[in-house]
Simulated assay, not measured.
Amino acid sequence: MSAHETNLSRRFSHHKTTVNGIQLHYVTGGIGPPVLLLHGWPQTWWEWRHIMPALAENFTVFALDLRGFGDSEKVPPESGYDAANLCADLLALLDRLDLRSVNLVGHDLGGLVAYAFTRFHSDRVERLALADTPLPLYDLEVPEWSEIEKRLWHQRFHQVPYLPEALITGRERLYLSWFFSSAYDPTAIGPEDIDEYVRTYASPGGLSSGFAFSRAIDRSAAQVKAAAHGKMTTPLLFLGSEMTLQDVFDEPLKQIAANVKTVVVPRSGHWMPEENPDFFTEQLLSFLE
């Protein structure tokens, strides 16, 4: 067991519960107002390991494995990986945990789910923090997006039925490691961390579940667009990394949010909670508190 695992196991506990017809896994600890953390691709709740202890000093932390990811149930790709159903998972989970509202933090695709949930259920979200979230996939107009999208070739590749699974099965570590090698500091996500991610993505159904969100993205975008009436009043923090989105979202975010702050995370690529956790945590705590 690594030092991170030992520290987390002393302060946090693992749970599984069945909501909306699926078994979800989450890790929780701390005391205070609730904060729900939603991971990106190709990650799991584990991406928050550096962030959780500091948050737990003043908040009750819930780090969730989304439907089909991590140690949550792997259900067939056709079984509801669109935004509306993923948000139905979250709503049922909040009700099961008796949480009237939460502070919501999402990275990458987890940010897309967090944004969708805020649009669908704004009364259940106190504050929303998004990290390197590709909101143009949900129809936000960003002039620089065409250049950014060139680095996101995998989004379209993952939408191709069956072929990605056929090419990647048995090579999960090679494929995932390629993405993590783009980090500002490639050592930030070490071999043991990659082991943890590969463990779940290489499990039966792990790849298909991971790709199913991309395959439902057009349907999800239409769902969110239909629910997005006017600007959000929920306070929004957008964290962009130095190497990826940077501050290109400054003006576009004003299209969708009345109260928004953008921050560039220095010395970091896309994997901000793992690459520069101290700065990331500092910004998050300042926003949430």
Score class of each variant (00 low, 15 high):
29 G>N: 09
202 A>F: 03
250 D>F: 02
121 H>D: 06
117 F>H: 04
212 A>G: 08
152 L>Q: 14
119 R>T: 07
60 T>M: 04
90 L>T: 00
58 N>F: 01
21 G>L: 07
280 F>G: 10
89 D>T: 07
174 L>S: 14
90 L>F: 01
112 L>N: 11
43 Q>H: 12
102 V>T: 13
13 S>A: 14
234 T>Q: 09
40 G>W: 06
72 S>E: 08
221 A>Y: 01
16 K>S: 11
234 T>L: 11
231 K>E: 06
206 G>D: 01
36 L>V: 15
263 V>M: 12
62 F>D: 01
204 P>K: 06
132 D>F: 04
283 Q>C: 10
67 R>D: 02
245 L>T: 12
37 L>Q: 11
245 L>G: 03
156 R>C: 00
101 S>Y: 13
89 D>W: 00
74 K>G: 07
249 F>G: 02
171 R>F: 10
107 H>N: 13
113 V>A: 00
105 V>S: 05
126 E>I: 09
288 L>A: 06
29 G>S: 05
34 P>H: 12
60 T>V: 06
254 K>A: 09
128 L>G: 10
1 M>E: 09
93 L>G: 05
216 A>W: 00
104 L>V: 11
66 L>F: 00
188 A>Q: 02
89 D>I: 06
130 L>E: 08
39 H>N: 10
262 T>R: 14
92 A>S: 15
13 S>H: 12
12 F>A: 11
243 M>S: 10
90 L>D: 00
154 H>N: 13
48 W>T: 04
276 N>E: 10
111 G>H: 06
280 F>K: 13
239 L>V: 13
58 N>Q: 14
257 A>M: 10
89 D>E: 08
269 G>S: 12
40 G>V: 06
34 P>W: 03
22 I>C: 13
184 Y>D: 04
176 L>Q: 09
130 L>S: 11
125 V>S: 08
201 Y>F: 15
101 S>K: 14
252 P>D: 08
17 T>C: 13
245 L>S: 05
183 A>Q: 05
12 F>P: 12
121 H>M: 04
154 H>D: 05
73 E>Q: 15
212 A>L: 08
249 F>Y: 15
107 H>F: 04
7 N>P: 04
240 G>E: 08
71 D>V: 02
65 D>W: 08
94 L>I: 03
78 E>Q: 14
209 S>G: 15
282 E>K: 15
23 Q>H: 07
42 P>V: 03
190 G>E: 09
22 I>Y: 03
200 T>K: 14
244 T>P: 01
112 L>G: 02
153 W>N: 11
10 R>G: 12
81 Y>F: 10
18 T>G: 04
62 F>W: 03
252 P>G: 10
1 M>G: 14
10 R>I: 02
1 M>P: 11
185 D>W: 04
90 L>A: 01
156 R>M: 07
223 Q>W: 00
216 A>S: 15
173 R>L: 09
226 A>P: 09
199 R>D: 10
269 G>V: 01
136 P>G: 11
258 A>F: 05
148 I>Q: 11
257 A>Q: 05
3 A>S: 15
247 D>Y: 10
242 E>N: 06
205 G>D: 09
98 D>T: 14
31 I>W: 00
10 R>N: 14
84 A>T: 14
249 F>W: 10
